[in-house]
Design a protein around this nucleic acid. Sequence first.
DNA 1: ATTAGCACTCGAAAGAGAGGAGTGCTAATA
DNA 2: TATTAGCACTCCTCTCTTTCGAGTGCTAAT
Lengths: 342, 342
Amino acid sequence: MELSERQLKILQAVIRNYLETGEPVGSRTISKYTDLSLSSATIRNEMADLEEMGYIIQPHTSAGRIPTDKAYRLYVDTMMSAKTEEIESLRETLMDKAGRLDHLLKEAAKLLADNTNYTSLVTTPSYRGRRVKFLQLTDVDELHVLLVMVLEGNLVRNKMLISDVPVDKEVVLKLNILLNTFLQNLQLSEINLQMVAQMKEQAVGFESIVEQILGALSQELRDADAVEVYTSGTTNILRYPELSDKEKAAELLTTFEEKTELTQVMNNRLESEDGTRGIQVYIGNENSMEAMKDCSVVTATYQMGDGVFGKIGIVGPKRMDYDKVVGTLQNLMTELDAIFKK
Amino acid sequence: MELSERQLKILQAVIRNYLETGEPVGSRTISKYTDLSLSSATIRNEMADLEEMGYIIQPHTSAGRIPTDKAYRLYVDTMMSAKTEEIESLRETLMDKAGRLDHLLKEAAKLLADNTNYTSLVTTPSYRGRRVKFLQLTDVDELHVLLVMVLEGNLVRNKMLISDVPVDKEVVLKLNILLNTFLQNLQLSEINLQMVAQMKEQAVGFESIVEQILGALSQELRDADAVEVYTSGTTNILRYPELSDKEKAAELLTTFEEKTELTQVMNNRLESEDGTRGIQVYIGNENSMEAMKDCSVVTATYQMGDGVFGKIGIVGPKRMDYDKVVGTLQNLMTELDAIFKK
DNA sequence: ATTAGCACTCGAAAGAGAGGAGTGCTAATA
DNA sequence: TATTAGCACTCCTCTCTTTCGAGTGCTAAT
C-alpha cells in the first residue's frame, strides 16, 4: 500500500491547489499544474487509486477531488516546506508590551491573528503548585489593610481586607512577621489546618484578619494556576466558506467566547511532552472538541521559566496554510522565549 | 400632524407585533390583534396615513408594514410598559464575584447576555484624574524591588522594578518616605518636572529607581483611567436574521472584538449627564458607530463611588424587546449600585 | 503505459410558473 | 361621514425545470 513517487507528487499537487483555492481540484488542473507532463486521463487513473486509499474524496460524482484528513496528516508530516514566516514588526511591538504579562500575551494573540488571518489562541503560562514568595500587609486606613502577595514567578496579587477591629501599625508589623514565618515558600497543598490554628493562636484578637488573609491567599494561589486563554481574530473564521455557515460559525464563535472550554483544547498535550518542545498539529477529527471537527489546530509551547510553559495556537479551516502557520508560530514561540529569558 | 388616539393604538400594535415576529405585519393581523374591532380596510387607511407620516414603511409593495426608527423612538419614549425584569439568580451570582472588580463586571456582562439573548457590554468605572493614595516599595531580593501603588478608589497596582545597583532595606525605607512625601494625593497632571528633579536630588545614587517608579506610576495612572469594556453573548446577534448575514455579522462581531471602539459608544453620553442617571436608548442611526446602524443600543449608568460611574449596555436588533431590556438593565444597575455601596 | 475520445453524472445557476399575502381603490352600507 | 366588502393588482417566495459545464470513468487507439 505504498504511495509511488508519482502518486505523492499528484497528491501534493492536489493538496497545494486545494489549500489555495478551496475548490475541488480536477485532473486537468493537475495535469497542467505539475511538471509531470502527464495527460489528465493518466492523472484520473492515479486519482482513482488515491481515492481508494483514502487520501482524497469527491464531494459528489463529477466533481474534482479534495484531500481527506489522512492526506493533510501526510502533508503535515512529510511534505511541508515550513518557510520561516516573518511576523511583521514583531519584536518591537512585543517589547513595548513586555511590561505586563496579560498585555504581552494579548498582543501576541493579536499579532498571530493579524499575520495569519486565522483565529489565534494564547494561554497564560501554567504553574502547578505555585509557592508563596512573600506576603506583605500594609495599613491603608483604620479598618482597611492591603494584602500584597508575591508568588513564585514574580506574580503579584493584592487584596484589600476589611478588619472588624481597628489595626495599627504595630499589629500590622507583627502580622507581617507572623505571616512570612509561617507561609513563605509554601504552596497551597502544604498549608494545613494545624498551621492555621497556630497562627490564630499567635494573633489573638485578629483571627478575622488572619482568616481573610488565608482565604485570599488560597483563592489567589488557585487563580494564579488557572490557565487563562486570550483569543484574537475570532471573526476571521467567517472568511472561510466551509466554516462560515450559520450553525458552524455560531458554534465556533461561542466556543471562542467561552474560554473555559478552550483551556482543555490548548492543554491537551502539555502533559505528554516528550522532551522536545515542538509544534503540534491537530487535523479535523483529531481535535478533542466536537465544535472543531472541521478545523485544524496548530499549537506551539513557549517557555516562561523553569518548568513553566504556555501555549500559543492557531485555529483555522482544515485547508489552512500549514507552512505559513507553522513558520509563524515557530517564530513567535522563539520570540516569546527570548523575551522571557531577558 | 398629531397622531389620533386610534392611530397610536394601531401603531403600537404594529410595533408590538413586529417586535415579536420580526415579520412585516398586515392590516388583517392588526384588525384581529387589537380590541378596536375595526375591519382590515379601515386599518389599511390608517396605516397609509401612518406611512405618510414616516412611522412605518413597506419593505415592498405588497408586504405588510414595519416600524421605522421614528416609530421605535416614539414607542420607547411614550408607549413602553417597562416591566421590571427579574434577572435570574442575580444577587447571589454577583455577590460571589464581588471580590474582584473585573470578575464582577464580567459576570454582570454574562448575566445580561444570558437573560436577554442579546449582546451585552459592560465598562469599567471611569475616573478622570485618579489620585495616588500611597506608594510602597518593598525589597524582594538584591536587585528586585516591588512597587505597590494604591490609587484612589482602592485600586491597587504593582510593578516589579529592577535596580542596577543593589538596594538594601534602609534605602527602601528612605525611598518610601520620599515617595509618599512628594506624591501622595497627587494626580497625573500635578506631577511636574520640578518635583521630579527634587526627588532625584534627594535620592542620589538611585535616580534610576526613581525614574522607573515615576514611569510605572504614570503608566498606571493612565491605564487605570482607561475604560475597559467587557462583552458577552456576542454570538447572540446571529440569532437575528436582520443582523446575521455575513457582512453585517462580521462587521459587528469585529467591532465587539476590538474593544477600543466600543468605549466610545459606551461613553457617548457620560458627559451630558443632566443630573438624573437614566436609561438611554439609541435606535438605528442614532448610534454614533456606522457598524451599529441596524442595531439598537440601550445603556444604563451604574455608580461605583462619588463621581465614579460605569456603563452597562445591551446591543441588539432594532426590534429588540425594549421593555424587557430596560427592565433588566434597570435591575442590574440597582444591584450594582447596592454592591458598591456595601 | 499513456492518451484521446466520448457518454454520462450531477451540481449550480437561470428561468418559469403557481400560490398567496397584502395592498389600494371603488362602491356599497350604516 | 365613517366604515367595510369586494376586487384587481403587485410582488415576494417557493418549487419545478431547464440548461450548462466541469469533471469523471471507460474504451479503444497510440
